[in-house]
Design a protein around this nucleic acid. Structure first.
Lengths: 207, 207
DNA sequence: GTTAAATTTGACTATATGGTTAAAGTGAAT
DNA sequence: ATTCACTTTAACCATATAGTCAAATTTAAC
């Protein structure tokens, strides 16, 4: 069935592109991985470029829709943050390679890729970034200090994403660290929330 | 002079490799950029692979030696952190593309690259990670809460590095954000230190 | 000035790779 | 069974690209 083979190809292409990048990916490798002839790739997807765009769009969609799914805003900010961090870490730890890939390909600055981003951002309407509005509201409500919402937003995703993006470096530098392990992900969750809420200053009871 | 042309080549190669990655880089482009014949590349540097290794090693050395320079340990932790964040942000904001490049190439997991990392890490003796020991000492001295030093280390570099690694995405999502601007770098510095020390809980005086 | 070594170049090669094509296979509708 | 559209394949093609080489040119030593 056509739908079947198409998704087989897309899956194979995804894994190759994500690992090797656009320039490093080879059509014959993708074909082999999909268990088909190389010419079939060009039958189903006109060109490498076209195939890449399909893959890329699919990845971004999957990624963002996983992340932007119901983080109910109708809670106190503490609960909101708990959910946010939890969902981010779960989503990313399941797709650790995608982050590296996205940082690489999105940073390319090529016209083609930039248009692609534009289209995708529009398509999945990454509007107003929910976190930022949530932060602003928490401040207005007096739930948290009046920090810069954009900086906090950047800090939040940095704390969640970075360990997976820089996994290779971290695991090389910190003996025994296993970023993808369940234990680390859980510990990371705790650490982020603790840091975000309390910083590192001594608590009153510790003085 | 031979030393001169070698460094000219290395500079050209750096810029091309950092932007396009190993797979995307083209020897003739490097040659053009260095203002020499393509064959000269192979005269001075045996092969693309060899040239890449030279470039990579040089970049890593430059990067780490910039970062690990005198962050005097003989201060209170607050001053230490100020210096740390300041140096990190300054170093990275001057080389924003290198981060993306390192995340990409180091994450490749190929045998060649991994050996390379190993050699470099050994060579520039990235030992025991100074921050971690500094954190531990601050805890022992009762300067800060007893947080996990490794998690704090990861958080620190995440907060500093991420905005530059993910610059393309961030600037696309946040209208008007200019990650490389002096203003942002300064604001980021403040935000990181503020968050690290105080978290986002309400201060007593705000209640 | 002559010689020898180091440097530089243009022309070339081998190969890998994205892409094409024409022909063969398959299956459903009539 | 014939037709016809869809699918699949092997064999090609054109080009790009890393790498080579022999000859030319410059530099340094004497």
């Amino acid at each position: 069935m056509t739908k079947d083979i198409e998704s087989t190809i897309l899956k194979a292409a995804s894994s190759v592109f994500v690992k090797d990048g656009y320039d490093g990916a080879r059509m014959n490798v993708i074909a082999e991985k999909a268990g088909i002839n190389k010419a079939l790739l060009h039958y189903y997807f006109r060109s490498k470029n076209h195939l890449f765009q399909m893959v890329f769009e699919r990845l971004m969609h999957d990624f963002f829709s996983s992340i932007y799914r119901e983080v109910s805003m109708d809670t106190d900010f503490r609960t909101y943050l708990d959910n946010f961090v939890s969902i981010y870490l779960n989503t990313i730890s399941k797709r650790p390679y995608v982050i590296r890939f996205m940082i690489w390909e999105l940073g390319h600055g090529s016209g083609t890729v930039n248009e692609l981003i534009g289209r995708i951002m529009k398509k999945w309407e990454i509007k107003e970034i929910p976190v930022i509005t949530a932060v602003q509201r928490a401040i207005d409500r007096g739930e948290i200090r009046a920090v810069d919402p954009i900086q906090l937003f950047i800090s939040l995703i940095a704390l969640c994403i970075f360990p997976f993006a820089a996994r290779a470096i971290l695991e090389n530098k910190v003996e025994g660290l296993k970023v993808l392990s369940k234990e680390f992900v859980e510990a990371r969750k705790e650490a982020i929330l603790d840091l975000i809420w309390n910083g590192i200053s001594l608590k009153e009871d510790d003085r």
